[in-house]
């Protein structure tokens, strides 16, 4: 059965959606100068990749991979991507925590959370001769 590209894309909608969100997150990180928004962009990218994995592991008509002794013939979905992404979530939280600590510290130094403003403040400091 040969499908057109459009039908294939529609059938693979979770992958397509997750990659679109990945692109949007990437754009958020690159284009926004607010440090907090950059961090949220990273979080969006990470969760979109998690979605990609979960969609990889899913089977239509399957049940969650918890063994039900009453139903030995149940079709379980693939448990491996879920297990991997449990690790991934912990990693993403660790990075978020560290980045927030850095944001606090930068705020203490510069009084702002905007990368462009920090850049300007630092350049002014250089021109005035004081080392920052």
């Amino acid at each position: 059965m040969e499908l057109t590209i459009g039908a294939k894309l529609l059938n693979n909608y979770p992958f397509l959606g997750s990659l679109i969100i990945f692109g949007i997150g990437c754009y958020t990180v690159l284009s926004n100068s607010n440090l907090l928004k950059k961090l949220l962009g990273i979080n969006i990218m990470e969760s979109s990749i998690f979605l990609f994995y979960v969609a990889t592991g899913n089977i239509r008509g399957g049940v969650p991979p918890i063994v039900d002794l009453a139903q030995p013939e149940a079709l379980y979905i693939n448990p491996l991507p879920t297990g991997l992404m449990l690790t991934g979530i912990v990693v993403s939280i660790s990075v978020t925590g560290f980045a927030l600590a850095l944001i606090i510290k930068l705020y203490r130094f510069y009084g702002t959370m905007d990368a462009n403003e920090i850049f300007e403040i630092r350049n002014e400091g250089k021109n005035n001769g004081s080392s920052s």
Binding site: F50, L51, V54, G57, N58, V63, P64, T82
Partner: peptide, 10 residues
């Protein structure tokens, strides 16, 4: 979405 994709643990 993850709940609907049978990943309750996650």
């Amino acid at each position: 979405i993850w709940l609907r994709m049978n990943a309750p643990d996650l």
